[in-house]
C-alpha cells in the first residue's frame, strides 16, 4: 500500500466519523486535532474503525503515533504491509 493510499484510508475514516469536516486541505505534518474538530472520543473511533475495517490493532500506548497524517503513514504503513504479505 502506498503512502497516499494510507493517507486516503485515514481520511476516509475521518470522513465517516465527522462528515461535517472539510478534509480537502489537511496538512500531513500538522496534528489532526489542531486542524479538525476531533476530540478524544473521535480519536478512539479512528482506532476502532482501523480494527473493524482493516484488522489493525493500535495499542493505547501507540495512539500518539497517529497524531498527524505523516505519523499515520509511518506507523500504519508497515502494519498494512505485514497484513498484505500474510494475506499473500
Amino acid at each position: 500500500m502506498t503512502d497516499n493510499e494510507v493517507r486516503q484510508l485515514i481520511l476516509d475514516i475521518i470522513h465517516d466519523i465527522a462528515p461535517d469536516e472539510d478534509l480537502s486541505d489537511v496538512k500531513p505534518d500538522v496534528r489532526l486535532r489542531e486542524q479538525l474538530d476531533l476530540d478524544s472520543m473521535d480519536f478512539l473511533d479512528i482506532v476502532m474503525e482501523l480494527r473493524k475495517r482493516h484488522k489493525i490493532e493500535v495499542p493505547e500506548e501507540d495512539y500518539m503515533q497517529l497524531a498527524t497524517l505523516d505519523g499515520c503513514v509511518a506507523y500504519l504503513g508497515p502494519k498494512f504491509a505485514a497484513i498484505g504479505s500474510s494475506a499473500a
Partner: peptide, 19 residues
C-alpha cells in the same frame, strides 16, 4: 455552530448519523 462539542453533535458522530 462552532464551539465546544455539544451533545447532539456527539450523538451524530458516535452513531455515524447525518445531522
Amino acid at each position: 455552530y462552532r464551539g465546544p462539542r455539544i451533545p447532539l453533535q456527539r450523538i451524530y458522530r458516535q452513531l455515524r448519523l447525518d445531522p
